[in-house]
């Protein structure tokens, strides 16, 4: 499998050279062809800037970006064989759905009959065959999202970039679109690069993901890697709802004196144990109850599955867990 996108020590700084804002700083990244790659991070972490560096809307201030081996440093967006699904969809309001989808073919000089045929084909792929004559303003959010997808895919891009494409949809539609996007990506065998701040979305859809923090990549790996073996406290904290144990608490709980992450679902309540604490909060989640216990100065959450007894707030309890569930992250 070859490499679709490659970042070599890429930087994008804004503002004066004396006090630059380092939106992206020293990023190395390899995205394999045909993979579903997610860029995950809080807002301002540099993930969207990285996506815009691939599409060409931002120019790197340092380093090299290669798309399928070709250096694109001096290639403007319209000559790059990548397409973007924008966060706000950016559909052209004055064109109907068919003309929106056919836009990329039109500017490349394809004849009307041919480009409309291709556009209709693409609209069928996203289940909007009967909506070609409507204006974008007459569509729902989910439908606009599909039009944006069809408009990008009709150009047969080598890489499809998606900038938080599901952010504006409600939960139910979002989950349906997640499945659909994933299926579409598999079927077409295309490289998808997906930006999101939603860790569930990133974990469930991506083959491989990069977690961004302050313009740098904190960790890159498979969803399982990232979830089970976070490299840093930031990753452990951001991806999911892990407990982060300081070295002394880890040691008190039977581990070495290192920072450690412990998943709430791997944590069980016990009447007695090496460390006990007071229950400070209960959150009912349907499939279980999240119990927060104050252990010294650290809040530790445990997930009690539905049907098992839940302690009351203020009660004292301890925890037990399989030592293998404890993921160590060093002593600093």
């Amino acid at each position: 499998m070859s490499t679709a996108v490659e970042f070599l020590n890429v930087a994008r700084h804004f503002g004066p050279a004396s006090a630059p804002v380092r939106a992206v700083d020293g990023v190395d990244l390899t995205i394999a062809e045909g993979s579903f790659f997610a860029m995950l991070g809080p807002s301002g972490s540099g993930k969207t800037t990285c996506l815009r560096l691939i599409s060409g809307f931002e120019k790197p201030t340092g380093g090299t970006i290669r798309i399928f081996g070709e250096d694109v440093s001096n290639t403007p967006p319209h000559l790059r064989n990548v397409n973007t699904v924008f966060q706000d969809y950016a559909l052209f309001p004055h064109l109907n759905v068919r003309d929106n989808v056919a836009y990329g073919l039109m500017v490349k000089g394809m004849g009307r009959a041919k480009r409309y045929a291709k556009a209709d084909e693409m609209l069928a792929l996203v289940h909007l065959d009967s909506h070609g004559d409507r204006k974008p303003s007459q569509l729902s959010g989910g439908q606009r999202q599909r039009v944006a997808l069809a408009r990008a895919l009709v150009n047969e891009p080598r890489v499809l970039l998606l900038d938080e494409p599901l952010g504006a949809l409600d939960l139910k539609l979002r989950e349906a679109m997640q499945d659909e996007l994933k299926a579409l990506q598999k079927r077409l065998g295309l490289t998808f690069v997906f930006v999101t701040h939603d860790q569930h979305e990133a974990l469930s859809m991506a083959d491989s993901l990069a977690v961004f923090s302050e313009g740098r990549i904190a960790q890159i790996g498979s969803p399982q890697d990232i979830y089970n073996r976070p490299a840093t406290r930031f990753v452990a904290d951001f991806v999911g709802s892990s407990n982060i144990l300081p070295p002394d608490l880890t040691r008190a709980l039977g581990g070495p004196a290192e920072w450690a992450s412990l998943r709430p679902e791997a944590t069980h309540l016990a009447a007695t144990g090496p460390v006990s604490g007071t229950v400070t909060a209960l959150r009912y989640l349907g499939a279980g109850t999240r119990v927060v216990i104050m252990m010294g100065e650290t809040e530790v959450a445990a997930l009690v599955p539905a049907g098992q007894p839940v302690p009351a707030e203020g009660q004292t309890t301890s925890i037990t867990f399989d030592q293998k569930a404890l993921h160590l992250m060093g002593s600093t």
Binding site: Q87, A90, G104
Partner: peptide, 12 residues
């Protein structure tokens, strides 16, 4: 984003 979308789709 409208102008970027146009460039993204290959327009000069």
């Amino acid at each position: 984003s409208m102008l970027e979308a146009s460039a993204d789709l290959g327009a000069t």
